[in-house]
Amino acid sequence: MTFKFARTGFAAGLAALVFATGALAADPAPATAVEADVAAGLPALNPAKASVEQIQACSRANLAAKGSLRDVTLKSKGRDGKERTLKLKLFWKPAKGSGEGRLNARVVEPKEVAGSSYLLIEAQPKEQLYFYLPAANKVQQVSSDDLTRPLWGTDLSYNDLKQLQGLAVSGTTKRAGDEVIESRKTYVLETKLADATPQYSSLKSYVDQQSCVPLKTDFLDKKGKVVKTLDADAKTLSQLDPYWFVTAYTLKDLSRGTQTAIELSDIFLLEQLSEKNFDPTSFYLANE
């Protein structure tokens, strides 16, 4: 029996979508010279000499820096072989002035949970997370420090994707040579997490050398056994200048024998998106 139930899910769910949309990664204030260079659209990296920091900054530069909308479909297959589909709309808009990322996730399907909404606001020192239950007509703010649990009947967890994206990874990353994934050259990055979770303690990421999009990530336990995998469908790798993105992923939880397919629409840039979508008192209303 486990006791980590629903409450842990909110922050995690939203951040999973952050990864999917690439929204939060658009750090409003590049902190290092490398990131500044990459953000400024400087020449591509030299694969032979690229450092870990350069590769990470290159990845983060792929994430949208403007307000946007994406449709997401999550198809999860459980241990029992049953499939479940979840459709969401993701609204993204950075805050004026501070540039803090803000994300509104609104569930469209299935019918019983349609209207359920999340609001994530990037803030220092910690993000703010709100959720809305239409059946109870109630907004609640949530904070959690257990972000490794899978969400919404899928295999996604907040930390999986957050760490993968390099947003809040606390650990040591090193390059471990290059490999070819689906005929594309990749950098291999190994990250040993500072705060190992029971589920996994290190990551192995394969980052496409041309686009800096991670094409594959393995999640490894203490013994080095792969317990989860996230695979991008390299054929869906697209470019909306200057951003590269993938529209299909598969996440497999090898220990539970489950998997989730993530399908994303193209990015629709919405610069006039209403601020009400990102206000904790009105984010759940149809404000677009």
Partner: peptide
């Protein structure tokens, strides 16, 4: 509806048991 939404927000792994 409320049951559905509570289960939706619940921790997948725990509820899957």
């Amino acid at each position: 509806e409320l049951v559905s939404q509570l289960l939706f927000f619940g921790d997948t792994e725990t509820l899957s048991q």
